[in-house]
Amino acid sequence: MDAVATLVVQVAITKIDALAVIALAADSPVLSPGSARPRVALDGGAWAEVDVPKFGEPPPLAIDVRSPLGLEHARLSALTLAAALEREAGWVVHPDFPVASGR
């Protein structure tokens, strides 16, 4: 079973647009764009999926970073993606998992 580390972003954006921003920040294409589970491949075998609020619900946007290599890898991949999203898109990204002080 894949490990999951979730990032939370307070933006109102569609799933398609969020995946495009993630793909740009990660410099990786959107995989399976027309499917029920589109995702963006990340380094080391991890990938990012987007969970948008349901109709009428306010943000946040949840980005699930999944890894077959375990929770530590999922979290490291998520933090790397968070830094890229902050740098490239100007998003304020909050990890939904404990992060050692220093970040």
Rank of each mutant, 00 (worst) to 15 (best):
A46S: 15
V40M: 01
H73P: 04
E57P: 00
A36G: 10
R75G: 03
V30C: 04
P38Y: 07
S35T: 12
S32A: 12
E49R: 13
E72P: 09
I22A: 03
L71D: 12
G45H: 05
A41S: 13
D51V: 15
S35Q: 10
A36C: 01
E49A: 11
P29V: 04
A36E: 14
A74M: 04
S77G: 08
P60S: 03
S77Y: 07
L31E: 14
L24W: 04
S35G: 11
P68I: 11
A74W: 07
A46Q: 02
F55W: 15
L76Q: 15
V30P: 13
A48M: 06
G44R: 10
L31G: 11
D64E: 15
A23H: 10
I63D: 02
A48P: 12
D51R: 15
P68L: 08
G45V: 13
V30T: 04
A41E: 13
D27N: 09
D43N: 03
D27F: 06
A41Q: 14
V30K: 05
P53E: 09
D43C: 01
A46N: 09
G44F: 08
R39I: 00
P60Y: 03
A62K: 14
A25G: 09
H73D: 11
L76Y: 13
L61V: 09
L76G: 15
S35A: 03
R75D: 01
R66T: 10
L42S: 09
A26S: 01
H73M: 00
A46V: 11
R75W: 01
S32L: 10
G56W: 12
K54Y: 15
V52I: 14
D51I: 15
H73A: 06
V21T: 09
V40F: 05
P33E: 00
A20C: 06
D27W: 02
A36W: 07
A25M: 08
P60H: 07
R66M: 12
P58K: 03
G34F: 02
G70E: 07
P53C: 03
S77K: 04
A20L: 11
V21A: 15
L61A: 10
I22F: 05
G70K: 12
P38E: 09
S32I: 00
V65Y: 01
D51N: 13
L24D: 05
A48I: 08
G45S: 06
G34T: 09
P53M: 10
L71Q: 14
A25P: 12
R37N: 12
D43Y: 02
A62C: 12
D51A: 14
P59N: 00
D43G: 06
P29Q: 03
A36I: 02
G70F: 10
F55N: 08
G56E: 00
H73T: 14
L76T: 15
